[in-house]
Simulated assay, not measured.
Amino acid sequence: MKKRILGSTGFDVSEIGLGCWQLGNDFGPLEDKQAQEILSVASDEGINLLDTADVYGGGISEDRIGRWLKKSKEKPFVITKVGRGETLFPASYTKNKVRENIQGSITRLGLEALDLVQLHCIPPEVLRNGEIFNWLEDFQQQGLIKNFGASVEMIDDAIFCCQVPKLATVQIIFNIFRQKAIETLLPKAAENNIGVIVRLPLASGLLSGKMAKDQKFSEQDHRNYNKDGAAFHVGETFNGLPFNKGIELVDQLKAILPSHLNLLETSLRWLLDQPQVSTIIAGASSPQQVIKNAQVSNLAPLDEELDKKLKMFYQSQVKQHIRGGI
């Protein structure tokens, strides 16, 4: 597994990280034994970055990671998030409440301090007010957190965050079906030494190439209840694409791929070919998925002709169908 520096944290993180939303049973029931196996296989594959949040499973994801950390010889870089808990979101943000949520994450993870805490898609007006960043800087000075960043929904919000003093990272939706960051955010992040963490690299599984129009999802899965933005921002599910349109686009995209690469490999490798990307948060509900994701780090970069085709495909076929802004 190859590594990259994560912005001003100075930490060498694996190019492929492990997204841990699914460890909170938020995509359907996941046995504790399997969750622990996923974490162990990720470590065996050289993945040293775990991404979770206090609200994933109401703390279950953090708790499972914490129990795994206690028995693991490896000490990965753990990212968690704050800001979507019921005591905060959408309009009850106070310094004490944010501190309490962070302390809850520290307890569940079994850590003395958080490696990195990111604001978790908080309302833009709260983000842009800026006071919450002052609180995070205070928590950093107090030793509760080592670094702080922001996970956002819109690229304009990410660009705003790049101006915040001491901000270490931005986490964004970025993939073959959502390419706006290339010309706008990535250069700004590099200029300010801010690590770029990519989420939804496979557009909620569309870019795995394994879904069909009759795909069924569990009741707990956001791909069931949020496919049209009923529960939270529509862009967080299938990249903001209507599901059936997403399947059609995937079928078209497969036709332009070289025979030696599948869609998952192409999608993750394309992201790694962007030099400003620090790490990709790839979720996995089985150890086999972890291994497949990790192997992409060692694939050769895509050739220029394929890269041009993928960018042209996005501009001509995908961009106009994305709902909720970019």
Rank of each mutant, 00 (worst) to 15 (best):
K71Y: 01
S72N: 06
R199G: 12
G104D: 08
L306H: 06
G110P: 00
D221T: 07
A150P: 01
G205Q: 00
E153R: 07
G283D: 02
T9W: 08
R67N: 15
V296C: 12
G205T: 01
D307K: 06
L241Q: 06
A158H: 06
V198P: 11
L207N: 00
L185F: 07
L310W: 02
A203Q: 03
L69A: 10
Y314Q: 00
F238R: 08
I155Y: 09
L23N: 09
E86G: 05
R67H: 11
N25A: 13
S259V: 07
S285Y: 02
R67Q: 14
K210A: 13
A42S: 13
E31T: 07
E191N: 12
V152I: 09
A255S: 14
N96R: 13
I38Y: 04
P76K: 05
Q317W: 01
D63R: 06
N25E: 11
S267I: 01
S218Y: 03
L207S: 02
N192D: 07
S286T: 07
G229S: 10
W68C: 07
K73R: 06
R178I: 02
L207I: 02
Q141G: 14
G58Q: 04
D307C: 10
D307N: 10
Q317C: 13
K3G: 11
A294L: 12
N134P: 07
